[in-house]
Write a protein that binds this DNA or RNA. Structure first.
Lengths: 367, 367
DNA sequence: CCGGGCGGAAGAACGGTTTCTGCAAGATCG
DNA sequence: CGATCTTGCAGAAACCGTTCTTCCGCCCGG
């Protein structure tokens, strides 16, 4: 028994049969391990004949280098964390679905194109999971104040790039963000140009940068043009609270004749509220919301949306991160501000035409 | 030079300063490496005093075991692949946004709860990326026929669980899927009960199981009740084709008085088409579509949707996969069929026209 | 008084790759 | 023709945590 155990431990564990190691390839090709490694990775000085031969043998044996061993040796895992700060238990929130999906998609593509893969890791994950994964770097979406995980990562020397300006002195290597002030001002000007006299804001109660910057931009604008601010704030992570807040906003005695909603569902929230109060859009109420959802092209009326261009941001963030990982980029922190796009639809254009109900006959395009 | 080089290679590479290894902990605690490993992992037979002492020292040194080394030794990486088959270049398609986001979210949560993390890996990724990641198992969403990556993974002995029935003889370890036939029949019955005489279908041209099963269920139902099938198929991955197909469907001489759309955007597609042809919903046209988007609660009128319950599916898939990885579950392939949920809204209920305006309180349409 | 059993802990092997060092033989040059 | 350079490749260290085996000493029963 002891002998058997010893024997088993000494050489073939039996898994030999399943996976060919570099040793097997070396033996089969009649060369050394070094030569196999060099041949497969295009390094070293080897005649083409040897290189081809080794590759051939490796293919025949179905050899796949062990990712774990390579990582151990090189210190590179080829893995990038995609970190989402969470409000509650869930990895990412309802209000950010479309944004997150688009951003993650772009980030995945960009990472893949450079040979990296993405690992989804909510910031609130159990700490042991974080410890169990070897990450070359991390993308953080909307880092919250004093995020312990991010701080820890930076302290360990792991490159961190954030989507959204880091609050406080969170020492990320780079960040990418929209010019939120500019976007809000653009929308307010657009609404004013469309005839709005009193523009309201549907905003959030949380303290993240997006909410904060957008709200202050709104307040500044109001101060500048001499309008009394009219806004309602609600917890954006609550999928139901938006409708209630929209209702509150339109129930006010100083009811606005135009509203900008900061969050994705606000378009339908506001449309529903307007309907309840018998307000016609855009005739009685102009509407804009920030959203990546294409659905707003099909509502009645179609709603003007502000796109934060998550695809661009996802791509940029990953590029910056991989540059940092590979030591390509500048040593200095990089701050990249991306433009937004206002997709103007019927809800923010006051025109003399077209009542909301009466349907035109035949396939005429009802803009 | 040689001496210096040798010296450098023999002991401190300099990075010593940054990361404490298990050896450092052992030395600092005055015990052996073994004892440190056992103490930290709760294994072996150690007195509590030793265990505590070692943990204390490890904490003080900020010791983090190397994930790579652990993976190498144990053969477990704690990583699960989340694989999406792709139609084009992009990792996942427009039509599946909400579904994918919800499913991924649930899967992430479920995996995290059991100590695993998710890696996003489109099936069309460069092969080298697949080779570079050590995966304990993989979730495949909607595996296509003869998917080479999946086949390869199974051949390597990596557990694979699929969301959606695998087509052909793809040898997955388990799958989870909805009862698509049942769902379609339920919808058709629902529409018929609401007064539909001729129900149309908006379907896809691709050959995936979802499309195929749903379409045949529709055709079977038509044959059973003696209705001539009325359907249009379009490439579902094209974000614009849906609107065109919806238009085609309503332009037919045998125009249906109710339509079920298989894909998420079909609700708005059909609503738009109905508007163009002056058809009132639900009076002239009953509408149902398959979607996870909450936006359909806010359209005018709200649209009845079929939810495939991606949250449940994501959770189930991950549980099954981890069971397989850890050898808990049965050795036999598991097939789990999950129920769907029909969320009935105004678009599929023909009533004495309940007006869309129902103000419970406050300033009504009078103001 | 001695052997068996057990608690406690150390030592060494292991896993697969990369990389640094270095040797031998052929090529080139003076 | 010998010395130096280059080419082709092998050997071994290093990476680092886990696990298998061993070993010591102690207690208890025979």
């Amino acid at each position: 028994m002891t002998a058997a155990g010893k024997h088993q431990a000494s050489r073939p564990i039996g898994r030999r049969l399943e996976r060919a190691g570099i040793r097997d390839v070396a033996a089969a090709a009649g060369v050394s391990i070094t030569t196999v490694s060099d041949a497969l990775n295009g390094k070293g000085r080897l005649p083409d004949a040897t290189r081809r031969h080794v590759r051939e043998v490796a293919d025949r044996l179905g050899y796949r280098p062990s990712a774990a061993a390579r990582t151990l040796r090189t210190g590179r895992s080829g893995l990038i964390g995609l970190t989402v700060t969470t409000y509650g238990e869930e990895p990412f929130t309802f209000t950010e679905f479309a944004y997150f999906a688009e951003m993650a998609r772009a980030a995945t593509s960009a990472a893949l194109a450079r040979g990296y893969a993405l690992v989804i890791l909510p910031a609130s994950s159990r700490h042991d999971v974080w410890g169990n994964v070897a990450l070359d770097g991390t993308v953080v979406i909307d880092p919250s104040d004093q995020d312990p995980v991010v701080t820890e990562l930076v302290r360990q020397g792991v490159p961190v790039v954030s989507d959204g300006r880091p609050v406080g002195s969170l020492p990320v290597h780079a960040w990418v963000d929209n010019d939120h002030e500019d976007a809000v001002l653009g929308i307010l000007d657009h609404l004013a140009a469309a005839g709005a006299r009193r523009i309201g804001l549907l905003t959030g109660t949380s303290t993240d940068t997006y909410t904060r910057l957008s709200t202050t931009a709104y307040l500044d604008w109001c101060a500048r043009v001499g309008q009394e601010p009219v806004y309602e704030a609600y917890p954006a992570h609550d999928p139901c609270a938006g409708a209630v807040a929209a209702d509150r906003l339109l129930a006010r005695p100083d009811r606005p004749d135009a509203v900008y909603g900061l969050f994705d569902p606000n378009g339908t929230d506001l449309l529903g509220a307007a309907r309840r109060y018998g307000l016609r859009v855009p005739d009685d109420l102009l509407l804009v919301c920030c959203s990546e959802s294409g659905g707003y092209a099909g509502t009645d009326p179609p709603i003007t949306t502000l796109s934060l261009q998550p695809r661009r941001i996802g791509t940029a963030v990953v590029q910056l991160l991989i540059d940092a990982i590979e030591g390509i980029g500048p040593a200095q922190p990089v701050q990249q501000v991306m433009p937004t796009e206002l997709i103007i639809r019927a809800s923010s254009q006051r025109r003399p035409h077209r009542t909301t109900v009466s349907p035109p006959r035949g396939p005429s395009r009802g803009e």
